[in-house]
Amino acid sequence: MNSIQVLNALAAGSLLTLLASGLALIYGLRNVMNFAHGAIYMFAAFMTARLVEHTNYWVAFVVVPLTCAVLGLVLEFGLLRPFADRSVITIALVTFGLALVLSSATHSLFGTQPRVVSAPAPLDGTLDILGDPYPVYRLFLITVGLGSVALLVAWLKFTRSGLHVRAVSAQPDTARMAGVNTKRLGVIIVCLSTGFAGLAGVLAAPYLSIDTGMGDAILIISLVIVVLGGIGSIGGAIVSALIVGGLQTLGSVTAPAVTTIAPYVLLIIVLLWRPQGLGRGRVDH
């Protein structure tokens, strides 16, 4: 194990962290297991590829997460608000339907051909890390990915509205009774969650290959991470995303055959030991 592998683990982990924390947020605040999360991520990556063809990466870097945040608004006011009285599973199944619709829309808007996006101008070189060359773009990916999550954590830990978010995640009814405006927080959280999925898509575009299966693959891993971390626990999701990212990257060098199964085995072991997951999640779940 050397520094390059640690960096690779961080790069994979930062994408997973962005996606899993978004999923954990929207579940904590709105009681929604969002199956459309992977489709939003794929949509973002394809949109980035299209924008890079016509303008440049930095335009995409700003426009794509904002577009995805707008998709969050549509989700909130089109589905979550009007159908707030439906069961968690019902809404989860509707988002599963929406995932198929959004994937289909992505394919007809941007085509189904796999794309490759090259790293943007100042970040396309390599840097020497303890004697080994390392792509600068991955360092950028790690910085932005983990930086955004660090900002999220800081917001949750040190601000009043962040405290409210944590309170609603842990005990929705009690928080509401104590006077937290869950409606206003709900909108912010849904947009933040889909915006994070968009950011993950933009960041992934020059790092991974863009294809039609990318959303499903990462969605399932992200869901595993959210359950591992404990439903309703955002901190738990972040920690388990880093664990899984690390496991996958480091394992793919040492024991590739075992690694693909590792996150699932880990999930089953953790649930045997702690059915509520690793983090301090919601009391009633």
Partner: peptide, 13 residues
Amino acid sequence: RVKALPFAMVTLA
């Protein structure tokens, strides 16, 4: 042993 939503996730996993 787990609740409905984690159940959906673990069976998927």
